[in-house]
Design a protein around this nucleic acid. Structure first.
Lengths: 202, 202
DNA sequence: TCAATATCGGATCGTTCGATCCGTAAATGG
DNA sequence: CCATTTACGGATCGAACGATCCGATATTGA
């Protein structure tokens, strides 16, 4: 049954999409409520009524991102793929997404990791993206473990080391893309990472 | 000869060190003039008289960083080292520096790359760090080229691809360190990157 | 039909932002 | 010795910040 009171007019999906794009483009702190009001077309009252705070809106926008463009990293959890193929799709897919000119460059999750003011204000905003990064890392690590058990990687492979290499490169893609690095070179770099994978086989 | 007028009282080095640490810890945008005044002990008048603006102070603080902790990446330009050794020192040295608990985590240059508000205000602040990243990349690339000409790397090596792999991993270290990744795993990851280098030899 | 509930636009809150101004102090060069 | 120049502490600027309040509107359940 519908909740009591006046139903909301605005399109939640459209608002989250607009807010996501703005946060993606500018980062959390550099994005003001005035800009969010303009891009969403909503008033402060509507924004605060629906999301509680700027942080609350950011969290929902990040979830929208993770379910949308950010979902490219989900392939790494697909156990139907060989571990190597899963990593390959993760890296090449992320590069394609982040260099797609139909939306801001880079990865919202990776780029939001830098702002770390001590104030309690932004702690929540950091948490959401940090949690996603931890999840990505865990899935990459699981993939590496699969590679060892399947024999793709040597038994004495340093699992956390290889994981950090792959995840580190993945995180570094965002900065490179923002600096104007071409997709072509990044795809070649991803191949270099994968070549490493291959030569660790037995 | 000394310039006319009242000489400045404060210790420029100490002020730049304090400002650098604060920007390093919090990022450019999250750091306020009030905080800078407190940590430097200077008044607004002194700050603006000496640096012109918050951006001006940031630029000087970044230069101070590059000449200090950030100088660990300079080893990659040392042509007395073999290309592989230069890259090894670059990566392991950066990891040691960024995980050193005597100062903020990560790399100021890498972490300041994410904030990209469209306002003209922060453009100058971004420029300084972006220029340093471009310089780092150029020096890594020169190292890779040296590796090809010296025969350490195969002749058909994709120079820009390998460069992007190394630089991408280097940039990703900062985020990983800020997320709490241990130096041990990162060193292992650097070894994995270098193992790639080795297997590309002939 | 009406009390209760919730959203809306828009005005406005107190705070903090980066930056400037002012009166005073300390050095220079003539 | 004095005019000039620069640096200092501290008060203060207008603008923008995130957040709240208010009157009007629209929907529900009784």
């Amino acid at each position: 049954m519908s909740p009591a009171g006046r139903p909301r007019i605005f399109d939640m999906e459209a608002v989250l999409e607009a807010a996501m794009l703005l946060f993606w483009e500018q980062g959390y702190e550099a994005t003001s409520l005035a800009q969010l009001r303009e891009t969403t077309g909503l008033s402060s009252a509507s924004l605060y009524g629906a999301f509680g705070s700027k942080e609350g809106l950011f969290e929902k926008a990040v979830e929208h991102y993770i379910a949308g463009p950010g979902s490219v990293t989900d392939v790494v959890a697909d156990e139907a793929e060989s571990p190597r193929e899963a990593i390959a799709r993760l890296l090449h897919g992320s590069i394609d997404m982040q260099t797609d000119t139909s939306h801001p460059r880079g990865c919202l999750v990776a780029l939001s990791g830098t702002t770390r003011a001590p104030g309690a204000g932004e702690a929540g905003a950091r948490k959401v993206v940090a949690a996603r990064r931890a999840a990505d890392r865990a899935r990459i690590r699981a993939c590496v473990v699969r590679g060892v058990t399947s024999g793709e990687l040597a038994e004495d492979t340093d699992v956390d080391g290889v994981t950090s290499m792959i995840h580190g490169f993945l995180l570094g893609i965002s900065t490179q893309v923002c600096d104007g690095m071409s997709a072509r070179h990044l795809h070649a770099a991803a191949d270099a990472v994968l070549a490493n994978w291959d030569t660790r086989g037995r």
